[in-house]
Computed example of a mutant assay.
Amino acid sequence: MQLLKLDLQFFAGEKTEKATPKKREDERKKGKVAKSQDINTAVLLLFCFIILIVFGSFMKNGMLTMFHHTFTEYIYWDVTFETVQQVLVEALIQMGQILAPIMTIAIIAGAAANLAQFGFLFTAEPLKFDLKKIDPIQGAKRIFSIRALVELLKSFFKIVFIGTITFFIIWLYKDDMMMLALKNAEDALAFFGRTTVMMGIASTLALLFLSVFDYAYQRYDFEKNMKMSKQDVKDEHKNIEGDPLIKSRIKEKQRQMATRRMMSEVPQADVVITNPTHYAIAIKYDEEKADAPYVIAKGTDQLALKIREVAKAHDVITVENKPLARSLYDVIEIGDVIPEQFYQAVAEILAYVYRLDKQL
């Protein structure tokens, strides 16, 4: 029996359930989402190489202009604090203009890659100081974990795969590379620039292809780590719904408040129809509020007794009508007008009450 109990506890703690929406939202607020860094890197590199192709001439001309200005004008300036400051400011402005296209596209590409994977997310939670992050024991566990081994194998495979592609491109252009000794510096630089961009784009496309599988793995690993045990799901549901004891107390308090409000309306009733002891229905007729009489209080047993006591204390007439009291209690709620099928019976009672009032 004890062994069976232990087995049940073990299975209750085993993480076999998918993460609930609440847990996903809580983890997302902490910055924990499924993403592949390889996708970010591949998209960033791809757009950067495209920008190099499109704006390469602009960047080259900017660099040549800066070097020409340096060796034809700056070189003759006296070295003073003002001249050094001016050279640095102008150089920074020129470098900023040259690098502005590639930096702008890099920022946009990085943001787009993240948005494509997990949408917009801003949180400072990962930046908070946490002693667990510098715990050497936890660090050692991460280093020698299965995940670390998988990351090592992934990195090795990427190096081999991308290295093979770049070597293949160099091998294709080996003859042109050997003939560079017969060309001028500008042609040689142009050749190396074209070859470098070609290798970069080919490697980036290969990395983008591999990143699809990496994202699938990251997604699988994320879902695996997000799994919950049956007990976790129950605890979360309990936290969302609230403690049953507290909920029952709240409901009891609400019921008491509703009863007090209902009892405060009883003195305004025209008549209280009783069973005589088990049911009590307080009815009022006000032409300005409703076209027919309506119920302002009802109850059974102890509540019915309180209604009768309040009615007696405020000289509200009580009329015994067992079938009518029972029928009204079953089909009508507080604030509702009397159904049409009870018009005749209620009208007779109200007429009787009004006659008694006139006699009194």
Score class of each variant (00 low, 15 high):
K15C: 02
Q256A: 14
G62C: 05
E17I: 04
R260H: 02
F47L: 10
L328Q: 00
T41S: 13
L88W: 06
I334G: 04
F191I: 02
K30D: 13
M226R: 05
F168V: 09
V43P: 01
I50T: 05
K251P: 05
T123F: 06
K60S: 13
E14I: 05
A190P: 00
L153R: 01
V266I: 08
A19W: 03
K253M: 15
K22V: 06
K141C: 03
I334W: 03
F157R: 10
T318Q: 15
R24E: 12
Q117N: 09
F222Q: 02
A202H: 00
V271K: 00
D26L: 14
K251Q: 13
T70W: 09
A148P: 06
L88D: 08
G62V: 03
V160E: 07
L303H: 01
I281R: 01
A42E: 07
P323L: 11
V331K: 07
M228C: 06
F157Q: 13
L180E: 01
D38Q: 06
I75E: 10
K306S: 03
M1T: 11
L303T: 12
F67K: 01
D221A: 15
T277L: 09
D301W: 09
I332Q: 07
Q254R: 14
V197T: 02
K32H: 03
L356T: 05
M179A: 07
Q344Y: 08
K174H: 13
G200W: 03
M263D: 03
E125T: 08
D270Y: 04
G119P: 08
E348K: 14
C48L: 11
G335Y: 09
G242K: 05
N239L: 13
G31N: 08
D232L: 02
K23Y: 07
K289M: 11
D235K: 09
K32S: 10
E25V: 12
Q138R: 15
P293A: 14
G56K: 06
W171T: 05
A325G: 10
F161Y: 14
M198H: 08
S57A: 13
D315F: 09
E25C: 04
F167A: 15
